[in-house]
Every structure is written in structure tokens, then in C-alpha cells.
Design a protein around this nucleic acid. Sequence first.
DNA 1: ACCTGAACACCGTTCAAGT
DNA 2: ACCTGAACACCGTTCAAGT
Lengths: 213, 213
Amino acid sequence: MTQESAKPPRAPAVTRRAVLDAATRLIEQQGVAGLSMRKLAAELGVAVTSIYWHVGNREALLDELVQEMVHGLDTLPASGTTPTARVLSLALELRRVLRAHPHLIGLVNERGLTPAMFLPSQRALVAEISAAGLRGTRAAETVRALQYHVIGFILVERHTDRSPEQHPSAEELWLAEPSADGDLAEALATPVDADRLFARSTEALVRSLLADQ
Amino acid sequence: MTQESAKPPRAPAVTRRAVLDAATRLIEQQGVAGLSMRKLAAELGVAVTSIYWHVGNREALLDELVQEMVHGLDTLPASGTTPTARVLSLALELRRVLRAHPHLIGLVNERGLTPAMFLPSQRALVAEISAAGLRGTRAAETVRALQYHVIGFILVERHTDRSPEQHPSAEELWLAEPSADGDLAEALATPVDADRLFARSTEALVRSLLADQ
DNA sequence: ACCTGAACACCGTTCAAGT
DNA sequence: ACCTGAACACCGTTCAAGT
């Protein structure tokens, strides 16, 4: 509903879509603070002011990326047969989806869209947790505990992903540590396997939350 | 070792300490991105360039705040009698300490000081987890799971603390939700009690991680 | 020892002007 | 319909100059 002219005008040098995609790339590489309108223009080979014609301004550009992320979070599919397995599968799936755009979580929140964004995954969690036999306040606390756990893990991971080499490193520190348990020190000197750590810790949390007690 | 003159010169308009404190205040209120040298100067009633004399530049200023935070994280005190209680007390204590400067966590990481910063709390966790009977890889995974859980929770909390009112709010969404479990929906429409949620979820995680399995 | 203003390169944004 | 350069207010930073 935007282009409707008698004669085909010359093709635009950039499109709204190209701007959004380039912005996404910049944010992934350098974080939200690293997204500048001038860098964007340079990358697209166009004057800065062209960007403004396509997306309004920086804020509106981010608004649009946020919208796309919020709409991208549909109901999550649960898999597995036991309640624990199904809830765990939801947590794994939520991490998988959020990991695609970890930088946008903060932007979504700044724009007041956090509840809307997480409603679908909360619904899915509610369904499985209810099926597991939890009710009322207890069930709600379980939903929230899992949500915080997953989002928190993603945020920590984003930090780790964007961090330079650390000095002194965990390896240096723990190999130099006088310790009763040499195996433990050695294990702590090893790089973190985020996938494994998330799977293990989340399973532990889910088991405990779903246990009767 | 810096001021050593025959006659007492006029008192400085600002001090290094005053700059650091004002910066801390600005960061707490507006986040790291909200810290500008010019705002800082305005707040202290001095020319921008004076700030540079005291702290070098923006980067060095942040370096100093990071140093203070890293040194502020000493060994944590564990309390309680059972292993679960003692490990849980460490997690609560770590959250308490980190909550004082949640914005600095990212800065510490950017500067490669994350392992150094968390070594003391890792040591404390190692001691209690070893006392609980865990060894080697399993113990290391437990330490890391707890560390990620606590840091993640803090990061989520920071987002929440700095967020505007959300539209639509969780309340609106869950009260409008057709649901089998009315109590659950009502509970999810209630504001999150972060202290309680953290205590509950962390206890659940600790119990599960320390269990034989 | 400490403060100042001028100056520079950067940024987001607006606007009048082009085609 | 789409692109452009000039211009403005902001930012971090350097420097020569003051007291």
C-alpha cells in the first residue's frame, strides 16, 4: 500500500527491510550502544538522512525490532512424557528462542512490553505445571521461578559472549589454588559449557519445583 | 603522596572522591549510558575539563568504580547448620552484595575481571559444597549453577527496577485470561515479590543440586 | 595543584532542496 | 518516492592558558 505510481521510479538505494537487517547485525556485533545511525548509513552506502526517511529515527527503528521480537515469541512446543521432561523442554525452548536476540530483552522491557512478550511462554508453562498437579500460588511461583531462571541465564550468557579474555582467567586462578579437592579445582579451571550447564541446572530446578513437599 | 606544598593552596572545588560518588549516583539513576562527563560536571558545579584532571577520562573513571566493586567482594559468610542452609545463605548473601551495584557487573566483565571478582564467593561455595559431600566435576557444576542463577537473577532484577509501567500489564493480561485455575491466574496477576521469589527458587535449586540423585 | 574556555571529532536529528 | 548536504545541539577529549 505504499508504492503506487504510474511510471516505475528508479529503484531505491536502500529499503526499510535492509535498514532493519543492518541494524540487527550491528546490534549483534557491538551491542545496542554500538548501533549508530551514521554507521548504519555508512554500511548501507547511503547518506545518514536516508535512514531517517525509511525508519523515522533511531528510537522508531528499535521499536520496530522490538515489535518483531515480541511477535516472534509464540507459544512454545512442549515435548516429552513426564511432567518434568515437558517443563524442562519448555525452558530449553525458551532459551533457544531468546538466544536469537538477547540484546532485545532490555529494549522490550524499556518499552513496557515484557508481560506481553512472555505471555505465550507463561501460558505454555502454566499448562504443563498445572498438568503436573500444582495449583494457585505455588504454581504461579513455579512459573516465575523458571522464567527468571531462563532469562537470567540468557543475560549472563550475553555478557560472557561479548567479553574479552579475562585476566586473571578462571584457569589461572583455580590451578594456582591450594585445594583439598584437586578434581574440583581442575573442573573449575575448565571453560564453562553453557548448553550443558543450562540443561543440568534447569533440570535440577524443575525437579525440585515439581516435587511435592 | 600527592599534595605536598609549603603554603596551603585554596581548597579544590571538587575532589576525586566527589567525582566518583557523583558518577555512582548518576549510574544508579540512569544506567551506565546515562553517565556523561558533562552531566557530571554540571552536577558538581564545575567545568567539564576539571573532571578530567581528577579522573583522567570516562574510561578511567569506570575502571576505578570497577576496582572498588571487585575489592568489595570479599569472602562471603555462611550461616546455618545444614549444608543446604549454609549454601543457601551464601547465595542470599551474594545477591545482597551484588544488588548494591548491579550496573557494574557488565563493566567488570568488559574489563576482564569477572573471574577475579567471583573467586572469593566461589571459594566460599566450594567449601560448603565440599562439606556437603560433593566432589570433582559434580561439585564444580553446582558452584557454577548457583553462580549463574544468582547473577542472572540480579540482572533480571536490574531490568525490572529500571523499567517503566508495562502495557499491557501482567495484571491486565492474566485477569482477562480464560483459565481453569482461577487462583493461579490471580497469583500471576500479582506483582512479583523479588525477595521471596529469589529465596524460594534458590532454595529449590540448592536442595536439588545437593541431593544424591 | 587545580580550574577554565576554545577547539575537534563524533553523534542524533531537522529541514530545505534536489531528482 | 527517495536521496542529499547544511546546520544544530549534544557528547568525549585535548590543549594551551590561567590562578
